[in-house]
Design a protein around this nucleic acid. Structure first.
Lengths: 147, 147
DNA sequence: GTAATTGCAAACCGTTTGCAAACCG
DNA sequence: CGGTTTGCAAACGGTTTGCAATTAC
């Protein structure tokens, strides 16, 4: 069981890339937060510790995805949101269309369904993304007050 | 059972909006194609019949989504892809990460799962989006040839 | 008649890229 | 030392918006 930094180091080495302090800081920052972040939020969070350009963030993110450390979660009004996934059980998202609140849930059934659907069409599956949309309890209250 | 144009007309009327020839053409074009289109593809398709500005397309699409005629399918290298959904059974997508091929499939289990997951968190659900990712048969062959 | 809609062109904004200096191995 | 990485600023491309003319109702 290796840490995210070891995963990064190994990935870089295997691809003839370099382990730089910038890349280390980015991974540290990403694994210190537990939210669905945008590149800009990451930039602002990092800025307090070490100045890193947005360009480097944009260049690093594809590497981290390739290395299996993070993944795209969804699009939020034009911006992509990411989460760290390495070391975490796969999960899906339940999102309130009104306020944007996100709840994570785990449904083992989906793994079987993924494999079955893929097989039925001759595909080899490599993952799935399920988003359930709805209205959260507190937004339900708010809208019932308005009526 | 009403047609897509009637749905459009009703939606517009109920919201104090106008039924224009442009909006009619857009809906006709969308329901004449059976693919996952981008705004630009729609623009090029329409252009042959009636010139409509991209601005009008961008302004009309949110209305059609609100009216329940179309929905976003997924992001494809920066562009949003849509499909017409009115009159069609809800389905999900199996996508090849290599060539982008998309297969649609229907899994009734997901409707139950959607309702159950939502209920468990006090949500009222309004839909779900599941994307299964993998490698299609023909891309599997290609990659086995390379090795 | 009057408010909604259209097309145009400019603005917007997240993301990508060319380049020269800095730096990892 | 050589090739990679960085930061900067400019470019890019999809989408949004202000405005004046047009049009649905």
């Amino acid at each position: 069981m290796s840490s995210e930094l070891e995963v990064l180091r190994d990935y870089l080495q295997q691809h003839g890339l370099r382990f730089t302090p910038e890349r280390e800081s980015i991974v540290r920052e990403i694994f210190s937060r537990h939210d669905h972040f945008t590149v800009d939020e990451l930039y602002l969070g990092l800025r307090q510790k070490r100045a890193i350009s947005r360009a480097s963030l944009y260049r690093t993110i594809p590497l981290l995805i390739e290395a299996g450390l993070i993944s795209e979660v969804f699009q939020d009004s034009g911006q992509t949101r990411y989460e760290h996934t390495y070391g975490h059980e796969h999960h899906c998202h339940l999102r309130c269309q009104n306020c944007g609140e996100v709840v994570e849930f785990h449904e083992p059934v989906l793994d079987d369904l993924e494999a079955r659907v893929a097989a039925e069409h001759g595909y080899i599956s490599s993952g799935h993304r399920l988003e359930v949309l709805g209205t959260c309890p507190s937004c339900q209250k708010k809208s019932s007050l308005r009526n």
